[in-house]
Simulated scan of single mutants.
Amino acid sequence: MDADLDLRKLRYFLAVAEHLHFGRAATELRIAQPVLSRQIRALERELGTQLLHRNQRHTALTAAGEQLRADGTVLLARANALRRRVLDTARGGARTFRLGFMPGLTVTAEVRALREANPGLEVEVVRTGWDDQTEMIRDGRVDASYVRLPLDPRDLALEPLFDEPRVVVVPADHRLAGKQRVSIHDLADEHLLQDPEAVPEWRDVAAEMRAGERLPERSVRTVEEKLEYVAAGRGVVVLPLSTALFYSRPDVRHSVIADIGPNRVCVAWAADSHSDLVRQLTAIAHRLHPEPPTDDR
């Protein structure tokens, strides 16, 4: 028999799927562990399938559990976004517009243009990062955002704006410091201070040239943290040129990576959004976005 998916039970399941530990998930959810266990079992009965392999020492997702985690994360985010839009409407319409932006990008002109075109509108800006730029759109924390590819485009609408070169940032005393252009092959032996999936060209070259060697897994969260590690000689980072220029400092240098593709900047929003403000933003963005930055050294 078909059953509706209970979003509360889904939220409980996603907490367990994240921690793979009922005790830690129960603490995060602020419920008793036996209650959480009963809710997960009830969800499994409703869906008619096992979601978790569990015993006293180990919890793991089944194949069905992996699928529910992937799709359920997006579903719950969309439900939260829907709730925010309904509440905005109940309060008299969306008089607050939340605009996200990635490091190295500025949205001042867009904010001013939106406010001038919509008297009384409050525009809030929210800094995002590689790990949450899409999540913030899906769960409604921002109404639209300036994003950088690559990203997971599920349930998102994307409007491309411009491309810009990618650069490697190295310590000021590094062997590559001062070079205007380098090759991705020059970086194969370097320690990358970010998720290799964000720089698949480096991942592929490094995997080929370092066959059998485990690639570094260090992933530092913010640009500021990454540059601190770079300056200390702990590794290198690949950034869009505008980000490297925005966070310029004397103890690091950057060089354009000549043989990999550029970074693409887009405006993104929820695909099911019908906001007129989003349509206004995309028109304004095309009118105001700057020319791709160049390296004039």
Rank of each mutant, 00 (worst) to 15 (best):
V267W: 03
D139R: 14
E159Q: 12
W202G: 06
A231L: 10
R78L: 15
R91T: 00
V199Q: 08
R24W: 00
R91W: 03
A26T: 09
L47Q: 05
I257P: 02
E124M: 05
F162M: 06
T282E: 13
W202E: 05
P200F: 08
T59E: 04
A157S: 15
L52F: 05
W269L: 01
L75M: 13
E228D: 14
E135T: 14
L10F: 08
G65H: 09
L14P: 10
L281S: 02
H53F: 12
H254D: 01
G140P: 09
E225T: 09
L156H: 08
V220M: 10
D2A: 14
E164F: 03
V107T: 11
L193G: 05
P165E: 01
L193M: 04
H286V: 01
T73A: 12
H185W: 05
L245H: 06
A81D: 04
V238R: 12
T106S: 13
A42N: 15
V238I: 15
R279C: 02
A258N: 10
T49Y: 00
A268Y: 04
P293G: 04
L192D: 09
S275C: 10
R218F: 00
V170E: 08
R221F: 11
R57C: 03
D132L: 07
Q56S: 07
R91E: 06
E201A: 15
P119S: 00
